[in-house]
Amino acid sequence: MSIFSYFKKEQKASASIAKERLQIIVAHERTTRTQPDYLPKMQREILEVIRKYVPISEEDVQVQLENSDECSVLELNITLPEA
């Protein structure tokens, strides 16, 4: 760093942006890592069935699989548009 660089504009350190972005994407990818392979396809098919009756978008269907010791719980959360 030289004396001239003191006149340059301050900017947010890019490393901290990198860290933030990585923490988010890595956390997201870890949750999908543990899910069974059929889940994305099943989610698409469920979406298609509902779309036959109600117009909804992809984000309106949330599928979550939770594993406990004895069993797995498949949670479906579908937000329908207001009639």
Partner: peptide, 17 residues
């Protein structure tokens, strides 16, 4: 570059992974 905030630090990488 780490001191300038331009590169992830070892601690950052360790924490993320």
């Amino acid at each position: 570059r780490v001191e300038k905030g331009e590169m992830l630090s070892v601690e950052d990488v360790e924490e993320i992974l």
